[in-house]
Every structure is written in structure tokens, then in C-alpha cells.
């Protein structure tokens, strides 16, 4: 009996390890190995070409902007959904979740339909005022914000619901206005949930490829994002650039992951 249970336990462990190992560990490891096998300096050179640097900076900048937008929007939306009852609230909540299930390619096409300077609904009006959205930075930021919309809301909303509004009411009875209450009570209460949501948003945007491939235009040194740089290097027979770029993206994810687990543990400690 005991031996059987022991065998089962070890069997399960081995199975899980093997599953995760083959699915994640081995491919990730091979990327690291392939990227670094020609030597660190050649990998470094591959990701410091002007095109690579431009793609990297563009990705970081648009990510920063989209994260900022979604942080403000996400906190506001979570507050609205948690603290107010209004008709259509559940519809709104469902809409916020839509990007989770919608394929990014569809997102990209939808954005083109709306913003394209020739056949879009709003695009021509903007184009007449010399603002390009598709194949330009605004399109990249909008697509980034779209695909990462739910993460801040989804992390902050349950915290707000669990904590309730008594602390905010207490602050009000003590003489605090709405703004003071937000800065001194609400924000500190949701800070670790918010940090987690922001990190998830960042990770999602850095890795986005589908919507970008429709929206950005992929013009080298102008509108090429970093994932596109990696993909293009690969298809253009530049494996050194592809693997070194992939390694860099991988390192970014590891950094985000470390920050995520830190904020998770802080959140657990506060509760």
C-alpha cells in the first residue's frame, strides 16, 4: 500500500516535471544556448544594430505609454465597477474581458477598419489633420492598450471588493475629500494588486505580436516592434539576431516574473 502510494507520488512529480520541462524548459534553454553559443560579443552585436535598438526602444516607449493609459483607466474602471451600481455594469465588465479571448489578429484588423487613413471610419478625418494611426506609433500604442486592457481591472477589482468601502467612508467622516481619500486610503490599499496588474500588462505588451503585425506596418527603424524584429531576423536568415533578440525578450520576462512574485508575496503579507 505504502509503496504504491510512494510510486504514484513520484510518478506524478516526474510527469509534471517532464511536461513543464519539454514544453517550457527545453525550448527556453535552447534559445539561451543558441543565442550564446557563437559567443557573448556576437550576440551583443546582433541586438545592438541600429534597427534592433530602434525596435527595442519603440517597444519600450509604446509599452510605457500603453501601461500608463491602462493603469489610469484600469483603476478608474475597477473603482466604478466596485463602488457604483448602474445599468449595464455587467455588460461593461464583460467588454473589459473581451481582449482576453479575442485573437490579437482580430484586434489588429478592427483597428485598421477604424483608423486606416484611406478606408477607416475615423482615419481619414485624422489623416486630413496630418495624424497617421495605422503604420505609425499611435496605432502601436492603441493596439498595445487594447490587448492588455483587462489586466489592471482584473487585479484591482477583487481587492476593492474584498476590502469594501468602509475605510473610504471612515476617511470621509474624518474630513477627507474624495481626492485625499483616493491618494491616502484607496491607492495604498490596492497598491500590490495594482503592481501585479501593471506587471502583467507590461509582460503582455512586450510579447505582443499578432496585433502588431497587422497594425504597425513593420517598417525597419521606423515602426518595427521588437517581436517583429525577432521574427523578421528569423525569416531573413539572420539566426544570430533572432536568437539574441529572443534571449533579450526572455530576460525581460524573467525580470517581470521576479517582480510579479515579489508583489504577490507582499500582497499576501498585507492581508
Amino acid at each position: 500500500m505504502k509503496a504504491r502510494r510512494l510510486a504514484l507520488r513520484w510518478g506524478l512529480r516526474l510527469f509534471c516535471l517532464a511536461y513543464v520541462g519539454f514544453l517550457v524548459g527545453v525550448p527556453a534553454g535552447s534559445v539561451v544556448w543558441r543565442a550564446l553559443s557563437p559567443g557573448f560579443s556576437s550576440a551583443w552585436n546582433a541586438v545592438t544594430t541600429p534597427a534592433a535598438i530602434h525596435a527595442f526602444v519603440l517597444t519600450l516607449e509604446s509599452a510605457a505609454l500603453a501601461v500608463a493609459l491602462n493603469t489610469v483607466f484600469g483603476v478608474g474602471m475597477a473603482l466604478l465597477l466596485a463602488r457604483r451600481r448602474f445599468p449595464g455594469a455587467s455588460l461593461l465588465e464583460a467588454l473589459v474581458d473581451l481582449p482576453l479571448s479575442l485573437s490579437p489578429v482580430v484586434v489588429g484588423l478592427g483597428l485598421v477598419l477604424l483608423w486606416s487613413s484611406r478606408e477607416g471610419w475615423a482615419g481619414p478625418w485624422l489623416a486630413a489633420r496630418c495624424i497617421e494611426v495605422i503604420c505609425a506609433c499611435p496605432g502601436i500604442v492603441i493596439a498595445s492598450a487594447f490587448v492588455s486592457l483587462p489586466y489592471v481591472v482584473r487585479e484591482v477589482l477583487p481587492v476593492l471588493q474584498e476590502v469594501g468601502d468602509e475605510q473610504e467612508q471612515a476617511a470621509e467622516t474624518l474630513g477627507a475629500g474624495a481626492l485625499t481619500t483616493f491618494w491616502r486610503i484607496t491607492l495604498p490599499t490596492i497598491r500590490w494588486g495594482l503592481a501585479y496588474g501593471v506587471l502583467l500588462t507590461t509582460a503582455r505588451i512586450l510579447g505582443e505580436f499578432g496585433a502588431m503585425s497587422v497594425v504597425s506596418g513593420d517598417i525597419v527603424s521606423r515602426t518595427q516592434t521588437f517581436t517583429q524584429f525577432v521574427s523578421d531576423s528569423f525569416t531573413n536568415f539572420d539566426p544570430a539576431g533572432a536568437y539574441a533578440g529572443a534571449l533579450l525578450l526572455g530576460l525581460l520576462s524573467v525580470a517581470v516574473l521576479a517582480a510579479l512574485s515579489f508583489s504577490r508575496s507582499r500582497e499576501a503579507r498585507i492581508r
Binding site: 468602509e166 467612508q169 471612515a170 470621509e172 467622516t173 474630513g175
Partner: peptide, 20 residues
């Protein structure tokens, strides 16, 4: 008048301490 200008002190049933 809003609660904050009424000059009241309120204690909630579960105290509503500012946890942070």
C-alpha cells in the same frame, strides 16, 4: 451636507481601521 463637513465622529461595526 456631506459627511466630512458635519463634524461627526463615526465608529464602524468592524472598526474600518486603515490597515496600511
Amino acid at each position: 451636507l456631506p459627511a466630512r463637513t458635519r463634524g461627526i465622529g463615526f465608529c464602524f461595526q468592524h472598526y474600518a481601521p486603515f490597515r496600511h
